[in-house]
């Protein structure tokens, strides 16, 4: 059975391996965020329903160029600080306001990240979703992303930081669909619902 827990709520009294977003107190396992937990699983963990992006190495994120420095650029990746993108091995010309997708090459203990492997996007829009709901927008084997692509005819790139770049097709429909996924991320059978929603709205 899946259930919703809040900070300080008991996840399990059994001895289990503790996963993410839990802590032990007096031999019992408690949640530290608002999220969902499955008491049938072998590890005690909570999948957060609210949260922010903490950079991790090798994440692909969508970023916005904020300013140019002597040897690189500062990129806003929707995290604690702006990240540094080196000009070395950078082929495309970038300027303030360019949208890029970058790979996080290194994160230090203060959560400051350096980024590399920039890919520039020309035109398009950025949509913002909660970073904890990115796995839902992609789906198992990218099933949800495929549904969105087919339903809206847009080019879509989903960054791990909760920013979604989209160009062409019906972007206003995409925006509505993303909002719906965000609101109903904790409910089952979401891909089918979104498929229905997109078909209905298309007409």
């Amino acid at each position: 059975m899946k259930k919703i827990v809040v900070p300080g709520e008991l996840v399990t009294e059994q001895r289990k391996r503790s996963g993410e977003h839990v802590y032990t107190f007096n031999g019992k396992i408690y949640s530290d965020v608002v999220g969902m937990t499955d008491n049938e699983s072998t590890t005690a963990s909570v999948v957060p329903l609210k949260g922010f992006y903490v950079p991790k190495q090798d994440d692909i994120v969508v970023g916005l160029i904020v300013s140019e420095l002597f040897s690189g650029f500062l990129v806003d990746i929707n995290s604690f600080y702006f990240s540094f993108l080196s000009k070395e091995r950078l082929r495309e010309p970038l300027k303030r306001g360019s949208i890029v997708s970058v790979r996080i090459s290194r994160v230090n203990e203060l959560n400051e990240a350096d980024v590399s492997d920039a890919r520039v996007f020309y035109g398009g829009e950025i949509f913002s979703i909660l970073p904890v709901k990115v796995p839902r927008v992609i789906g198992k084997n990218a099933s949800m992303l495929e549904t969105l692509r087919r339903g809206t005819n847009s080019n879509i790139v989903v960054g791990r930081n909760g920013w979604v770049w989209a160009k062409g097709g019906n972007t206003s429909l995409l925006s509505n669909a993303l909002k719906r996924i965000e609101n109903e991320a904790h409910t089952p059978n979401l891909t089918n619902k979104i498929t229905e929603f997109l078909l209905k709205e298309k007409k």
Binding site: P7, G8, F25, D32, V33, V34
Partner: peptide, 11 residues
């Protein structure tokens, strides 16, 4: 704070 998703021991 809980609504912002900040990890807390308890409310």
């Amino acid at each position: 704070l809980a609504d912002a998703g900040i990890p807390m021991k308890d409310l």
